[in-house]
Amino acid sequence: MKKIDTSGTGCPQPVLMTKKALEGSPEGIDIIVDNNTAKNNVARFLKNSGYNFSIKEEADNFLIEARK
């Protein structure tokens, strides 16, 4: 599964990176985010785009697994 790392990027980059990655891999991607704002923004985007997703808390990050 394709994986993108949005760590260190500010609004609206995490969602923009997610959107672009999903255009290349519409079946799903894994997304690393490093703060709550990005986590919530990416989750809202995935919900609005009709993707199922799960959020796992890792050491300093969150791993969001988005699937069609």
């Binding site: 609004c11 609206p12 959107k19 985007f45």
Partner: peptide, 19 residues
């Protein structure tokens, strides 16, 4: 709430997100 005056219009254009 992450209230942002520019984010509203930006997200609407970029992601059709009205939040």
């Amino acid at each position: 709430t992450r209230l942002c005056m520019v984010g509203g219009t930006r997200d609407m254009i970029l992601f059709k997100d009205s939040h």
